[in-house]
């Protein structure tokens, strides 16, 4: 595994390049097909409202997949991710208005964990519509 970022080149507080990920209904249909998660709350507005949601919501696992891209794009090698966890705090609501939603993700090095293994902990922040959609979002990455 060959991360392109050197362990010695980062310190606690180093910021990763932030990214924005647009989500439309089409995105959710594609993700449903690729992941096999066909829960209708992710594509059927009538069903979503019946179970008390404001509208169709994105798959939590879709948001989780997007958030880690801030880490994998930075590290270069996605195989450098050793550990990854999130809490799903708020749904990403995706209206059928031709615009959809945007997931904004930023990350920073929270801790250098192990000089020998060259691992760091990255804390991620993911928001949509100004609301935090993931909590406790952390990844451990092995750097070069």
């Amino acid at each position: 595994m060959v991360a392109k970022v050197a362990y010695d080149a980062v310190e606690t507080g180093t910021e990763l390049p932030a990214q924005s990920f647009p989500v439309t209904r089409e995105t959710l249909v594609r993700y449903a097909g690729a992941s096999g998660d066909f829960n209708p709350i992710h594509w059927n507005e009538r069903f979503a409202r019946e179970v008390g949601l404001p509208d169709v919501i994105a798959h939590g696992m879709f948001t989780m997949a997007e958030a880690i891209r801030v880490v994998t794009d930075w590290a270069g090698d996605p195989g450098a991710v050793v550990d990854y966890g999130v809490r799903f705090t708020k749904p990403v609501v995706v209206p059928d208005d031709g615009v959809g939603a945007v997931i904004e993700v930023s990350g920073k090095v929270a801790q250098k964990l192990d000089d020998e293994a060259r691992t760091v902990r990255v804390d991620l922040t993911a928001t949509s519509g100004g609301q935090k959609v993931l909590g406790m979002s952390r990844a451990v990455v092995r750097l070069a």
Binding site: G60, M61, M64, V81, V82, D83, Y84, G85, V86, R87, F88, M136
Partner: peptide, 8 residues
Amino acid sequence: HGDQKFAY
């Protein structure tokens, strides 16, 4: 789905 973790 409350939380999700992976350890690789």
